[in-house]
């Protein structure tokens, strides 16, 4: 359980880092640079991985949403 949560948070930190570096390149570079786009591509790639890994972790019983059953 704890390990799964740690992995989720680590990937999320990676997403924050790629988004942050994209902002840095957006301010620093001019329009010809491709560094912003590269960082943003990493950002979306990691996000998709995180989303899918949540479902995989749930399927293997490694993570539970708030420890309660689905609402409604």
């Amino acid at each position: 359980m704890v390990l799964a949560k740690l992995i989720v948070i680590t990937i999320f930190l990676g997403i924050l880092a790629s988004l942050g570096s994209a902002m840095f390149y957006l301010v620093r570079d001019d329009g010809k640079s491709g560094r912003t786009l590269k960082a943003l591509t990493w950002r979306i790639g990691l996000s998709v991985v995180l989303f899918l890994s949540l479902f995989v972790a749930y399927a293997f019983g490694l993570i539970q949403p708030h420890g309660i059953s689905p609402a409604g």
């Binding site: 989720v8 999320f12 996000s47």
Partner: peptide
Amino acid sequence: VVWLGLFIFVYWL
């Protein structure tokens, strides 16, 4: 990314 943070911390963890 803000939504992803919400989805993780408000709905999941």
